[in-house]
Write a protein that binds this DNA or RNA. Structure first.
Length: 762
DNA sequence: CTCCTCCCTTTTTTT
DNA sequence: AAGGGAGGAG
């Protein structure tokens, strides 16, 4: 018999839920009830008698997993809902790696390095190798290494891969393989895995040990993946392996919402699903339940400009709704005030809550002006993302103590706290320790703990201080299995001197830092209570807490009950919805980002990002842009985003007449005054006037033919000015040049779009 | 060894 | 605009 909760689904949704066996792909347009399908599917499986332990559901954030569990519980009222394996790829597989750690030669309590830890290791490698830190900057190195790992390329393979090697040589960074190798060794020596290692090692485990693969294939009889369009190769392969036996895999996604290619997500995963799983059933959810007609149409009109996409028609039965508003501001402060004013106005007119509003932006740095304006208007807000709580210095310091106690091999943790609070162990000592450890290929901790039997050359005072530190850590290690995580954390915070050091700083920042330490301790207590409730009374260890914290994403922070407006990046907003949405900073070089303008694929990803932003809105969407904006401390002139033109003008609000008084100003015709002289941005006249075109300052005959350009050629670019071509790669449409611009630096340009002019020397 | 000052980079998005 | 790192003085 069909359970009654299924009556809440439409026809396609129901099919997607009821076809539980065999491969299923659900292509879900924005707001079409994708989470609903996933939730109901899991509930239905349990209802049918599938053991929750046999279900694996991977979501994009821990928070989404948690919410899904709660909804399943509401649907079927079965506390077994908690036993479903549900979480992010990283958190679920970290848990499994912990159980199987000895197979891969890691201790049970290995550390997980976050991006900062990884960069810090890389920096020390580059220094120890005496490489130029400008050439081998950590950000780029981590990108290279990260994308290698997510394609399952270890240092050996990296070194042996001719294509990778030629890329690195072209980028004038031919020695990355050495750095990768050493980074790899150091992480291993520290018994640490970075984010990518978690996926790499799971693949290794499932590949190397057929019996383990079989074990998990049998455990996870039903697997579900949310946001499948954002999975990378490593994740794709894990799912493929796990599902190979029973084929009960259900993936849900939307190619139009793929926004993580920059992080290695491979859109082919979703495009090739039917090939990977012959006989897969495909369900398309095209009815949007979230947004008004105007919003849906605006989103559709924007995404139509992308060439590569699966065919899908998103439609809605909802009302037409209000027109989309456009706010034009003179600068970012002004923009923030206009937005805050508009929020205030709507709130008063329609009696709305703060939590009905979200303000979205492309980069975290944009939040500041908005925060100021909201404070002025007395609107309570909450900033998601940006500096996550667990990334703050004082918090990381405390966590480093925890890590060192749990895994004393963790060098990053060691160096972080060995002299904080200050205990007379300075740079000279630390460098020496580091050298001694490298020579022996030991963790630094081992040097310190065996200091009596090693010829170190330290004076007796230094040795005494190191021994005191050793005793401090050992003391807590002995208590690991005796007291609970919360008690231990409290003891460490006090005994390490951290609390005292922070307490003595009575500046406002110092007080905040002190309070943050308190919050961490409270956080452990909360974690402990929840863990006990979910694990039939089992106590969590300090290591459990650390694992949770390391894989905590900025979206996972729990919402309190306060009524607050949300401020977040568009990326963070994925999967969420709000009645009133503002998308701010719609300017060229910001949205789309200046970093993503060199190829069609990048622009298309930015456009999908804009699509995601639009489709967050339920009843009212407001867009805004500014004429000028501060960036890196200096003033920039901005042109409105090309995406604004892609919205059908009939959906936009007709602005009121020019009025400079009061704060509630609508969009005004833009006088072309920025460096792009022909920019004529004039939405409401569109019906009479031809759609404006962003014309280019260089006329067609001035622009060099891509084939005529060669290395060493002096060229001119409309935005970057004069420069010299360093090298050229690719051919035809994909021909790219790297150009060294005077005062701007190196840029990689796709010649088809760059419109370079040859500079003739006089 | 520690503290202070000055200079330099950073900002695209995140598990 | 701001925080972190390097380098110098005490």
């Amino acid at each position: 018999m069909q359970p009654s909760f299924l009556s809440n689904l439409n026809g396609v949704q129901l099919q997607a839920v009821e076809n539980t066996d065999g491969p299923v792909m659900v292509l879900a347009g924005a707001g079409s009830g994708k989470t609903r399908v996933l939730t109901f599917r899991v509930a239905y499986l349990i209802h049918k008698g599938v053991d929750p332990h046999n279900i694996l559901a991977l979501t994009f954030t821990n928070k989404a997993a948690k919410e899904m569990k709660e909804r399943i519980y509401q649907l079927i009222g079965d506390s077994k809902a908690h036993s479903v394996w549900m979480g992010t790829f990283h958190s679920v597989f970290a848990r499994i790696l912990k159980m199987e750690s000895e197979k891969l030669n890691y201790p049970h309590d290995f550390s997980i390095y976050d991006t900062d830890d990884s960069k810090s290791v890389l920096k020390s490698v580059v220094r120890d190798f005496n490489f130029d830190e400008k050439v081998y900057n950590t950000g780029h190195l981590l990108n290279r290494i990260s994308s290698a790992k997510m394609n399952l390329i270890d240092p050996e393979a990296y070194k042996a891969d001719p294509e990778i090697q030629s890329q690195d040589r072209l980028a004038k960074k031919p020695l990355i393989w050495q750095i990768y190798q050493e980074y790899w060794n150091r992480c291993k020596r520290s018994a640490a895995m970075d984010f990518d290692d978690l996926l790499f090692n799971i693949n290794l485990l499932l590949h190397k040990y057929p019996e383990i693969l079989e074990k998990y294939q049998n455990r996870f009889k039903y697997v579900l993946v949310d946001e499948y369009q954002d999975t990378n190769f490593a994740q794709y392969l894990i799912m493929k392996k796990l599902a190979a036996q029973h084929q009960n895999i259900c993936v849900v996604g939307d190619d139009a919402q793929s926004i993580y290619a920059f992080r290695g997500a491979n859109i082919q995963n979703i495009l090739n699903f039917s090939k990977d799983y012959p006989g897969a059933q495909v369900f398309k959810l095209e009815q949007n339940y979230r947004s008004t007609k105007r919003i849906v149409e605006a989103a559709n009109s924007v995404i139509l400009n992308n060439q590569s996409q699966l065919h899908k028609t998103v439609w809605t039965e909802n009302d037409g709704g209000e027109p989309i508003s456009l706010l034009k501001a003179s600068n970012e402060t002004d923009e923030a005030l206009l937005v805050a004013n508009s929020v205030f106005h709507s709130k008063m007119t329609y009696h709305l809550k703060n939590s009905d509003f979200a303000i979205l932006y492309r980069t975290n740095a944009q939040s500041r002006a908005l925060e100021d304006a909201l404070r002025k208007m007395n609107i309570a807000y909450r900033v998601y993302g940006g500096m996550s709580f667990y990334k703050r210095k004082e918090v990381k310091d405390l966590l480093a103590y925890f890590r060192l106690v749990v895994n004393s091999a963790d060098n990053e943790a060691f160096f972080r706290v060995v002299n904080y609070p200050v205990r007379g162990i300075g740079n000279t000592t630390i460098n020496k320790l580091s050298v001694l450890a490298s020579e022996r290929e030991w963790p630094v901790w081992k040097i310190v703990s065996e200091i009596d039997s090693i010829q170190t050359g330290f004076n007796s005072g230094t040795i005494k201080r190191l021994k005191d530190f050793k005793e401090l850590i050992l003391h807590y290690q002995q208590q690991l299995n005796i007291v609970d995580a919360y008690d231990l954390a409290q003891k460490i915070a006090a005994g390490s001197g951290l609390i005292k050091a922070l307490f003595e700083d009575r500046s406002p920042e110092g007080i905040t830092r002190y309070e943050n330490i308190e919050s961490v301790l409270n956080g452990i207590r909360t974690f402990q209570d929840e863990f006990i409730a979910e694990n039939e009374g089992k106590m969590p260890t300090m290591s459990d807490f650390l694992q949770m914290v390391s894989l905590f994403s900025n979206m996972d922070e729990s919402d309190d009950d306060d009524d607050r407006l949300s401020l977040m990046t568009v990326h963070s907003a994925k999967g969420l919805e709000f009645p009133y949405v503002f998308i701010t900073g719609l300017e060229e070089n910001l949205f789309p980002s200046s970093m993503s303008m060199s190829s069609r694929a990048e622009i298309e990803e930015e456009r999908r990002l804009f699509y995601v932003a639009i489709t967050r809105a339920m009843s009212k969407l407001t867009l805004s842009y500014a004429d000028t904006r501060y960036r890196w401390g200096d003033l920039n002139f901005c042109t409105p985003s090309r995406f604004l033109e892609e919205i059908d003008s009939s959906l936009l609000d007709i602005p009121r007449k020019f009025s400079q008084n009061k704060g509630f100003q609508r969009s005004l015709p833009l006088k072309s005054k920025s460096e792009s002289p022909s920019t004529n941005y004039n939405h409401y006249n569109k019906k009479e006037v031809q759609a404006p075109v962003f014309s280019h300052p260089f006329s067609d005959e001035d622009v060099a033919n891509a084939a005529d350009l060669a290395t060493g050629q002096k060229v001119e670019h409309a935005r970057f000015g004069e420069g010299v071509i360093c090298f050229i790669e690719g051919s035809g449409q994909n021909r790219k040049a790297t150009v060294d611009f005077k005062g701007v630096g190196r840029k990689q340009l796709v010649l088809k779009f760059a419109r370079l002019k040859i500079v003739i020397p006089d």
